[in-house]
């Protein structure tokens, strides 16, 4: 596998809402199998940028490709080749584990047989085989989140977008969650993750720091710490975010 193959590439990507420029000429690339940390304070434009990459919103100007498809014109194709998990829990509480898997498998056009095959593998990997017929509501939050990730990658997408996936979970569950992410990345899935836990940022292959809609820093955590002479990503982040002009929500 060519590990410099760009799965996401973005040039001068800009989104304006009236006079307000939410995302200001972003340019970056994300390579296959990378875990790309997309960091920034609230209101820095993370969500807006991510929505454009997912085909939910059109760029005002600039250009971008995700999984080989143009974000401005091939939104439908992109949707078929990406996975998405949001900060808010994204499975249906009143359906069972298996029903959720079947629903999302069905949405991505997998055959019933294929869904069942993958479901069995997925449940075994998560170690919750006995819970196939449990309603998701009664699972602990950590399990739900792992399950949500597994469901988001059920159709083997090329890129998975994770929007603050570990909000509100205890450190142990977060560690377990990140093990899942590593596993998926090792299997060639590209991970695009936003987070505000700076310790998590250390786990990423590369990180970018978004301030006021622009990328202020981009590189491996070690590189950036060295360049800005920071002890940790947390310190780095605070130093860069201090320069932000936009009011933080």
């Amino acid at each position: 596998m060519n590990d410099r193959e760009a799965v996401i590439s973005v040039r001068e990507l800009t989104k304006c809402f009236g006079a307000f420029t939410a995302v200001d000429h972003l340019s970056f690339e994300v390579f296959r199998g990378e875990i790309f940390g997309f960091l920034g304070a609230n209101g820095a434009g993370k969500t807006t940028a991510m929505r454009m990459l997912c085909g939910l919103s059109y760029p005002t100007s600039g250009w971008g490709r995700v999984a080989g498809y143009d974000i401005a014109t091939q939104g439908e194709e992109i949707k078929r080749h990406i996975g998405y998990m949001s900060q808010r829990f994204s499975l249906y509480d009143d359906l069972t584990v298996l029903e959720n898997i079947r629903l999302f498998g069905g949405i991505y056009g997998l055959s019933r047989r294929e869904i069942l095959r993958r479901a069995v593998g997925l449940l075994r990997r998560l170690g919750i085989r006995g819970e196939a017929h449990t309603r998701v509501r009664s699972l602990p939050l950590g399990w739900k989140q792992k399950l949500a990730f597994a469901v988001a990658t059920l159709h083997r997408p090329e890129v998975v977008f994770l929007d603050e996936p570990t909000g509100g979970v205890d450190p142990l569950a977060r560690r377990q969650f990140w093990e899942l992410i590593y596993e998926a990345a090792a299997g060639g899935t590209t991970i695009f993750v936003t987070t505000h836990y700076m310790d998590e940022a250390e786990y990423c292959t590369r990180i970018s720091m978004l301030v006021d809609g622009r990328i202020q820093a981009l590189g491996t955590p070690a590189e950036l710490k060295c360049r800005f002479a920071a002890e940790s990503v947390d310190e780095l982040f605070r130093r860069l975010a201090r320069g932000a002009k936009r009011a933080q929500e």
């Binding site: 085909g55 998405y84 998990m85 949001s86 808010r88 994204s90 499975l91 949405i107 991505y108 977008f161």
Partner: peptide, 13 residues
């Protein structure tokens, strides 16, 4: 409200 709509909108449906 629950956020599942977002997930659906990102899906090919």
């Amino acid at each position: 409200e629950s956020g599942t709509m977002e997930v659906l909108l990102v899906s090919p449906v």
